[in-house]
């Protein structure tokens, strides 16, 4: 069992958990992920590690309550535990000194996994320019954290409620147009955003890395469900990634595969809690566990 030491609401529907996991914290590196399962009936949910603290023995995860599994997770409180947590999985981000200027881009809750990468790059002595994008100011997360580990931070909002009005690519294009010498771009966020970033840097030949989060089960290379087309090769995101050269990624294929269980997810949302049918209160601890 893995205890929730801290629960924080970052923005509506977006939650932060600090989990007690000393062994994972000891080994975690920027770019890696964990898979968790809330209870015995639960799905295996992959989440990128948003932070880790080796001294405290904790890892941080940030997630959006979008489906049945993340809602179940979100219903847990500080002091409660999740059943399974496995990691750190995947390859760590390539970080070394003197890489030059790195642009770290996070879209939506994608800012969370970008944070330890930006911090790692900064600690290694690189110049870090961060771009954070959100639909509007209210749902922007991790601004202070990103400012603490970046040389420059640009915020973009779709509605212009804060920072630059537009998308992360708007700010990125401005940097390119200003003539900033960019050694590498790292972008994490919704697939459409990562695809846009890839298209923005492609004409300039700027090496661009994206972190993919396809559907997966085991996370150790056993099921192959997370396969993505990278150039001419089919790769497993869980063990060969999750980070790949953005200019080689088949984003269209990735988006199609992510829709595999749309029908079932809808069915799951419509599923009526059996406890509720019996007039009992619905909750994460209810025995039917089918929320």
């Amino acid at each position: 069992m893995f205890k929730i030491l801290k629960k924080q609401v970052l923005s509506p529907g977006v939650l932060l958990f600090d989990l007690e996991a000393p062994r994972i914290a000891k080994k975690a590196e920027p770019g890696q992920f964990v898979i968790l399962r809330v209870n015995d009936e639960g799905e295996r949910v992959p989440l990128t590690i948003a932070d880790f603290n080796r001294d405290k023995g904790t890892i941080t995860i940030i997630f959006q309550e979008v489906g049945a599994s993340t809602q179940l997770l979100g219903a847990l409180n500080e002091g409660e535990s999740i059943l399974d947590l496995v990691g750190p999985l995947g390859k760590k981000t390539h970080i070394e000194p003197d890489m030059g200027t790195i642009v770290c881009i996070g879209g939506g809750i994608g800012v969370a996994p970008v944070y330890p990468i930006a911090r790692g790059l900064k600690q290694a002595g690189n110049k870090v320019i961060s771009i954070m994008g959100a639909k509007s100011k209210e749902i922007l997360i991790f601004e202070d954290e990103m400012k603490a580990v970046s040389d420059e931070v640009y915020v973009t909002t779709d509605d212009g409620s804060y920072g630059i009005k537009g998308f992360v690519t708007t700010a990125l294009q401005q940097l390119i147009d200003k003539g900033v010498k960019i050694a590498e771009v790292i972008a994490i966020g919704p697939v459409v955003m990562m695809r846009s970033v890839a298209e923005a840097t492609r004409p300039y030949g700027i090496h661009t890395v994206v972190s993919l989060n396809p559907i997966m089960v085991d996370g150790t290379g056993m099921c192959g469900g997370c396969r993505v087309q990278i150039g001419n090769e089919s790769k497993f995101a869980c063990v060969d990634g999750p980070e790949f050269d953005a200019h080689q990624v088949d984003f269209k294929g990735l988006m199609m595969r992510q829709r595999t269980y749309k029908t079932q997810e809808a069915q799951e949302k419509d599923h009526v809690c059996r406890c509720e049918q019996q007039g009992l209160a619905k909750g994460a601890d209810c025995e039917c566990q089918s929320h």
Binding site: E41, G42, E43, R44, A68, S69, L72, V217, D218, M222, C223, Y261, Q264, E265, Q267, E268, H271, C288, Q289, S290
Partner: peptide, 17 residues
């Protein structure tokens, strides 16, 4: 694995589709 380990045959009581 989906069917045996994750018990997808009992979806949606078990959450894996």
């Amino acid at each position: 694995t989906r069917c045996n380990l994750m018990k997808a045959y009992q979806f949606p009581t078990h959450a894996t589709p």
